[in-house]
Design a protein around this nucleic acid. Structure first.
Lengths: 268, 268
DNA sequence: GGGTATTTGTCCGTATGTATT
DNA sequence: AAATACATACGGACAAATACC
């Protein structure tokens, strides 16, 4: 029965009778229209909440969620030097899509690696790495969390700026090349989807439980000798991010539709 | 208070006191241990359910979920002819990872395109396409749903097998090349995360509401002249799938860890 | 197959707290 | 300060699914 009510409300939302941002009738009003107890009404709304169709705000009401205009990250793209790098490469990437980027200061730590990072960077579990953490915003909205891990030998070879808590404007990929000659020859990304932990949920402003999951990308970068020079772990909320992969020869107008066309309609 | 109970149970799960597959105390037992009403206990368990930590089975109890061994799809990979193709390319890809593949028969339809497909294939909304739909299983478990759309001119040029409801063993990419000389020069993938619709939830056996979302990939393929020759929409449940992207020069042992190493430990 | 006990699912009622307007 | 609306907690009753005898 609460399913029936949820289904009925869902239909109203999808038809457009309840457009995005609209307020649903209050629980008491719904209780009367469906002749059910308030608890049953709440169960129905909880279904819609976990499906991401509505959100409740205490003291205000229940509202149809408005979809956030997604930002598309192209994983195969080499922007300047590195599509997911620090500093200007990241800024350039976002500006190219006509969005407003902002990044927090970098938080630098020297840590022992855990088991998983050790495996991906081919280190031993006793080894230490430099981690550089940054929070990123687009259009003043929390957009992603990023942490890069660099093996210690990179710093020992002379890349001292990695342990300074300041942005590397040229981008870390470019810096590593000029500083110690470690050129990024390629990388491997792995994408997984999971539920956010409490820190992530707070930072991204995600509803306390349920609904929005996060996408975690892990980028292992290699130099020309096949050495692991970096592992970058990025976390993106799934409700405002998409990813693209370009392979082989594709037309220029298909490579990055958002950069060339302002709106949804590309006029094909 | 229900958050407190949920937090307490979550801690027990993460410490390993309640290992994957274990049954939690019944609601009545928990009611006594926490001195709360059954409703409050149920709210606590609902939190864990939406976080994907536990699942409830009517008549049996509440169990700690067991993580499914994920299948990694490499989006940049060219297996035989096409990593996400029909027929033997798909089979090869799964067998290479030491898993057991199975695919349903192909369901073929001739349909008018909707607005979104028209845009991605650069067709008009009145145009028709051939759609080929397939359900895929790995280790006898529902794994993905795939639908490919081909513009009508491809069939008119002689690719008649596309409108036959049978697998194309050599793979459709290879078939299009040999049949009408339309060689796949490249493609663009777009990945989004969303909640499953009811059909998808049923097919994948996902919990009725909440938790597990699906990953939708849309692959637009181009021939040497930059023409759109195919749009493939695939839907994967996020709890058993990962994606990988390889770019540039990377060491052979990093390209596809699952194919070369049997277990989790690659011995780095 | 049938019956019974167990366990979760659904529905009702009520009261109070908290956030917002 | 008051009104509104959702959040949390208590209580009970019956239904549905499963397991076991």
């Amino acid at each position: 029965m609460y399913r029936q009510i949820a289904e009925d409300l869902r239909a109203q939302i999808e038809v457009g009778q309840l457009p995005p941002g609209a307020r649903l009738p209050t629980e008491i009003e719904l209780r009367e229209t469906y002749d059910a107890s308030r608890h049953t009404i709440r169960d129905a709304i909880k279904v819609l909440t976990t499906q991401g169709l509505v959100e409740t705000r205490p003291g205000q009401g229940t509202f149809v969620v408005e979809r956030i205009s997604p930002f598309v990250t192209t994983l195969t793209q080499v922007v300047g030097s590195d599509g997911s790098g620090e500093g200007s490469p990241y800024i350039q990437e976002v500006v190219a899509k006509r969005r407003l980027p902002r990044a927090s200061d970098v938080r630098v730590e020297i840590r022992r690696v855990d088991h998983r990072i050790a495996r991906e960077l081919q280190l031993n579990v006793e080894d230490t790495v430099v981690s550089r953490h940054q929070r990123r915003y687009i259009d003043e909205k929390a957009w992603s969390l990023q942490t890069s891990f660099y093996p210690m030998w990179i710093i020992e070879q002379g890349a001292a700026r990695l342990i300074q808590a300041s942005n590397i404007e040229q981008g870390t990929v470019d810096y590593l090349k000029t500083a110690i000659g470690a050129e990024q020859a390629g990388w491997r990304d792995t994408l997984t989807v999971r539920m956010p932990d409490s820190d992530e949920a707070r930072f991204f402003g995600l509803p306390d439980y349920g609904r929005v999951s996060v996408i975690e990308t892990r980028r292992t970068a290699f130099d020309r000798q096949g050495r692991r020079i970096r592992l970058t772990v990025s976390v993106y909320p799934a409700d405002r991010n998409e990813f693209a992969v370009n392979v082989g020869d594709i037309p220029a107008d298909a490579e990055d539709p958002a950069s060339s066309a302002p709106g949804q309609e590309t006029g094909g």
